[in-house]
Amino acid sequence: MNFFKDMFTIFSNESYMQIFWKGLGTTLSVALGASIIGLVLGLIVAVVKIASAKNKKIKFLEILCDIYVGVIRGTPVALQLFIMAFVIFAIRGFPLEVTAIITFGINSGAYVAESLRAGIQSVDYGQTEAGRSLGLSGMQVYQSIVIPQAIKNVIPTIGNELIALLKETSIVSMVGLIDLTFAAKIVGAGDKMADYFVPMMVAAIFYLVIVYALTFVIKAIERRMRKSERR
């Protein structure tokens, strides 16, 4: 029964909750900002990579994209965060939160790019051929036919990536940014609860609620897109 009592203590203690709310805010803003950067960057990289694979004149762009995706996916995100926080943005007064958003944005961009590229390539080539045979330019075909279908194809994958991203942001505590995970650690420290278990459980509940909400939204979007094409 101690567990529930402690739980109640946390939820009814305003100063504890304030730490959690602050942590939650950091987690959400880092995840949201990084998602936006990741989606935009991913789309650009995916399109550039496919376009440059076909056009020999801009071959170097393909190589550039490959290096980006390879390096980001081949190294731990914690290391990337350290490099950003302690080397590149090691500027006094530079907000850690922004460093985190940029790091995770660049990181998820690589994963999004790969999923989108796979999604674009999974669109039947006949779709492109039909568009080009009507006299549409490659760009017009991409914009009106290929990209919309690719996005529909990859919504489940990208959704999973965004969920993974949300959870991965917990490592920002390693550079001293107070997110949800760090908040639990603070509340559990000796000068407060002097017990880590229950605060960690509270953090877990927060994460679970967000993840379930996200999953619900993604499923709803998926369903709507599928239904619209069955009309």
Binding site: G126, L134, G135, L136
Partner: peptide, 21 residues
Amino acid sequence: INKHRQKMGMVFQHFNLFNNL
């Protein structure tokens, strides 16, 4: 070529209607 393709309709074995439209 795009200009000329506008004047050359093509019909494919597998129809290739745009699935998203």
